[in-house]
Nucleic acid binder design. Structure first.
Lengths: 230, 230
DNA sequence: TACCATTTGTCCGTATGTATC
DNA sequence: AGATACATACGGACAAATGGT
């Protein structure tokens, strides 16, 4: 009796460790996991118990399971989880959006230096395209949420830091999910500002770029504060 | 037959929505969740099914279950999840630590301005205490990981941005979990640098503070690069 | 196209361990 | 000490998606 309890307690740790080892092996190779039934038999536990152990790894995104196919290991993307936990929070406390904006501005502005150094021609061209579409849409009175995001995304992707990309993607998603962000601003002015940002970027004029970006965040902040007080 | 399938498909969505609503209600009040058995009966599903639906919310930390007590709603802390997904990644690809360091330096340095504005006397005093302990330990040749972390934590907590606190906590945890970070540096010099940082902070000399902090991150980066090439 | 084995998803009932009050 | 409530485990059944024949 006492032996089985100890045995069970040990097994659950061993089980988790075994899973972690299997993950580390497969992170490089991309090899598939054994099937549930097989693995359960190998490790000497029930399917339910195995699934419970697997569950946190699937929640973290390291293991992805496809019905009818199997389980796979991949680079985890935290943006999904960040958005999942913080979106509900944002729904309950809308003023949190200001805290998010603060962090977003810190990351985007302080990544400009690296972006200027590392950006390649294709990325510059892509940003140029977005600016042209923005100006065209602005002239017609159309919004350009997609192009705006694409512009900034190209900017912070060019830093080459994958984690940074994941974080900022999360913040952009959170912003798009908030109704407070739907306050429309002067389209022509925003499009124009992006044109000047691109210009400063091409000239590698960091301090000018930082100033423009700072302005943009100050505007966004102001619009949110106004929306909160309504 | 066809009806039950549709019914099931609908139920799972409805179920999730109901849970989200119950969470938003309780985020403010802190009220307890109904018991599993009760809730399963009310929503017309099995206990296992209910637990499956609840599981992602528990993974995100919004719902916390206490054995023998019940389920509670609380502010989600993403640092746990970030650490969970990225730690395994870091074990497989140690050079990722440089990307983490880059983000950490962006956040810490660009939060200094806000910290200088908002820090109160108690926080200043706390940092002073850490510096004194650091110097004492450095003189004896002892490491001071805890005090170092406490110093920086007080710094970024004084910005008053809870989300920022969660993010930076995650990065510090990741660093402590990496063996690459165990490279010891010149203790006396590090302690001294912290003393000068505190001095600049008290004088509200932002640019001096930024310079010192930049130096510190450059050192850290250098030590990691060296450790990677061994 | 249609069929089929494989694999994961969901559900059920049940039993026992264990923490809380 | 006892009632309550969650944690963990097992086995079995069927649904649903996938991939290949």
């Amino acid at each position: 009796m006492g032996a089985t309890e100890i045995n069970n307690a040990l097994q659950s740790n061993v089980l988790e460790d075994r899973i972690i080892d299997m993950i580390t092996e497969r992170l490089q190779s991309g090899e598939k996991f054994p099937t549930e039934t097989q693995l359960a038999k190998d490790l000497g536990v029930s399917r339910t118990a195995l699934r419970e152990t697997l569950s946190p790894f699937e929640a973290s995104g390291i293991i992805v399971s496809k019905q009818g196919s199997g389980r796979y290991v991949q680079l985890p993307d935290v943006s999904v989880q960040i958005v999942d936990s913080w979106r509900i929070l944002l729904r309950a406390k809308p003023d949190m959006l200001l805290s998010f904006l603060e962090i977003r501005s810190m990351l985007e502005i302080s990544s400009l230096g690296k972006a200027i150094e590392r950006a390649d021609a294709a990325q510059l061209q892509h940003m140029g395209l977005q600016v042209r579409i923005m100006k065209k849409k602005a002239a017609r009175g159309e919004a350009f949420v997609h192009e705006d995001r694409e512009f900034h995304k190209t900017l912070f992707i060019s830093t080459g830091n994958i984690m940074l990309e994941q974080l900022l993607t999360a913040f952009w998603d959170l912003f798009e999910s908030s109704p407070l962000n739907k306050q429309h601003s002067d389209l022509v002015e925003v499009a124009d500002k992006h044109e000047r940002m691109l210009e400063a970027f091409t000239r590698k004029d960091l301090s000018q770029l930082e100033n423009l970006m700072n302005d943009q965040f100050a505007d966004a902040r102001y619009r949110i504060v106004v929306a909160l007080n309504k």
